[in-house]
Nucleic acid binder design. Structure first.
Length: 505
RNA sequence: GCCGCGAUAGCUCAAUGGUAGAGCAGUUGACUCUUAAUCAAUUGGUUGUAGGUUCAAGUCCUACUCGCGGCACCA
């Protein structure tokens, strides 16, 4: 524990608001209370207080004060714990009275101390449960303990906190004040844990492979660079888990997955954070069709069991208060060949046109074509803008041209396409899946084409593994952040990552 | 990296180039079933930073910082 550079400024520089809060520290201490108190054992969560509610029952609860309504001789308020909000009530008799002998006069100083509490303070409360005239479950406080004094004001409870920069930099405030944010991150946690349960229940083994790699392979993204001192070694943060998981297939693990962070040195956007969570799943003796069914089953399972519905709200919240659009995850999800999807969007004659004709058609359709694009790249731009971006309900795009996916098996009937799928939902690629290439000689050739001149980037160790024999296998990847966005209806990846990357202030 | 938009009290937001304001929070007082408590009074500002134009700048101009959206990057 270091002293830290951010010592609090001297009192005279603090705003009045902060000075008053600090002054209360002395008030608490002068009556013998440590304002950053000790443990408060034996508490019950708000959720279980509400679930097992019985009038007159004595409970111990703890949380942060988020509302405080002082009415003179009695005080109402709400506190918040991890599971929810509960109303509390205190008056002179409840706090200062003698329960064993109600005829004895109450001690008013207890209520005066209680009145000194601020919004944001963390308290432990002991009291009896009752229901108010208006029907709200409430704890009547008989004893309280200040567990942590808050020296700064809470954002407005009514308006919430809406400044995105503050929400991300001080996420704790966002979590205290914005209930839907709390809900989103609870859901994220449940989604991740349900994915693990689902896979483990089907015999998959979770593994952990290196995040620091001498060669960052498995995708074509810029890696982050770091350095190991003792070995004087340049290392890269991984951009994918693929090549290590395939080594495990060689090693005889037939059903494996890894669910953890990847790092890509790319720009930030509504859909991109430089560190993001992904799962990759590999199953020996399966193919991309098996994996497509697997992904469909998994996502439907998550929607039903974590979210509770297959009808997911999506898109911007309308200003006029009308409900958001919804997308429908009900299966079975259609399969569509890449060529057919492009033809539907760009004309049945698309593939009959000359390359120049395709460029002209793309322009007519409003797809911007940068000069110098290869012919298949023109088609893929059209695909991305007119098919992918406009997809709402799930669709598996199959039979992609082999130029787009160099690491998958070629189709046995049509060698110009590969045995893969791309799962599109709500304008995003949620999951790719392959029949994995296990021919070490073809794999070497494809990787050599990919790395070009930079032969030192060729993962020889991976190719060596393949030469020992990797079983035919199906593999998938799912971007967890994007999956959580999809299932929670979030519009930005920053709303499903607790601490998204920001420039330091 | 490029283009556009934004930044005003602790929070949410106002303010024709002409006296920086409101609601909530805070403070003081009243009130023993309130719940956006209510009522009365009241404190709080280097208008993101640095320059410039102007008699006068929150407002116009330039640069910068940070954020948001889009583009580029991203099999």
């Amino acid at each position: 524990m270091s002293i830290g550079p951010t010592l609090p400024p001297p009192m005279e520089e603090l705003s009045e608001l902060l000075q008053l809060r600090r002054a209360k520290l002395d008030a608490w201490r002068s009556e013998g209370t440590d304002p950053f108190g000790s443990s408060f054992p034996g508490t019950t969560s708000v959720a279980s207080v509400i679930a097992d509610f019985a009038e007159e029952k004595t409970v111990r609860v703890a949380g942060r004060i988020v509302a405080f309504r002082d009415m003179g001789k009695s005080i109402f308020g709400h506190f918040l714990d991890q599971t929810g909000r509960l109303q509390f009530y205190a008056n002179k008799q409840s706090l200062g009275g003698n329960a064993a002998d109600p005829t004895q006069p109450a001690d008013p100083s207890k209520l005066e101390s209680f009145r000194r509490l601020d919004l944001g303070d963390i308290v432990g409360l002991e009291g009896t449960l009752f229901i108010t005239k208006t029907g709200e479950k409430t704890v009547k406080v008989t004893k309280f303990a200040l567990l942590s004094k808050s020296l700064r004001p809470l954002p407005s409870a009514w308006h919430g906190l809406s400044d995105d920069e503050t929400r991300y930099r001080q996420r704790y405030l966002d979590l205290i004040v914005n209930e839907e944010v709390r809900r989103t991150f609870v859901l994220r946690s449940r989604i991740v844990s349900e994915i693990r349960r689902y896979l483990e229940g089907r015999g998959f083994l979770e593994v952990e492979t290196p995040m620091m790699q001498a060669i960052a392979g498995g995708a074509a993204a810029q890696p982050f660079v770091t350095h190991h001192k003792a070995l004087n070694l340049q290392l890269f943060l991984r951009i994918a888990t693929e090549l290590y998981l395939k080594r495990l297939l060689v090693g005889g693990f037939e059903k494996v997955f890894e669910l953890n962070r990847n790092f890509r040195n790319e720009g930030l956007s509504r859909k991109h954070n430089p560190e993001f969570t992904a799962i990759e799943v590999y199953q020996a003796y399966a193919d991309y069709e098996v994996m497509a069914s697997f992904v469909e089953g998994l996502i439907i399972h998550l929607a039903q069991n974590v979210i509770g519905t297959l009808q997911i709200p999506t898109g911007p919240v309308p200003e006029d208060g009308s409900p958001r659009k919804t997308l429908d995850l009900t299966g079975p999800w259609p399969r569509k060949r890449y060529r057919d999807a492009v033809k539907e969007a760009a004309g049945a004659d698309w593939f009959d046109l000359a390359p120049e004709g395709r460029k002209a058609r793309a322009a007519e359709l409003g797809v911007e074509i940068i000069p110098g694009l290869l012919d298949h790249e023109v088609t893929n731009h059209v695909f991305e803008k007119l098919v992918e971006a406009k997809t709402v309900n799930p669709v598996f795009i199959t039979h992609l041209p082999k130029e787009l996916v160099p690491l998958a098996k070629q189709n046995s009937e049509d060698p110009s396409v590969v045995d893969v799928f791309e799962l599109l939902i709500n304008g995003q690629e949620i999951s790719p899946g392959y029949s994995e290439l296990n021919d070490p000689l073809v794999q070497r050739q494809r990787l050599e084409e990919q790395v070009g001149e930079e032969v030192h980037n060729l993962d020889e160790d991976f190719l060596l593994a393949l030469e020992h024999g990797m079983p035919p296998a199906g593999g998938i990847g799912i971007g967890i952040d994007r999956l959580v966005m999809l299932l929670t209806g979030a519009e930005s990846i920053r709303d499903v990552i607790l601490f998204p990357l920001l420039r330091p202030r």
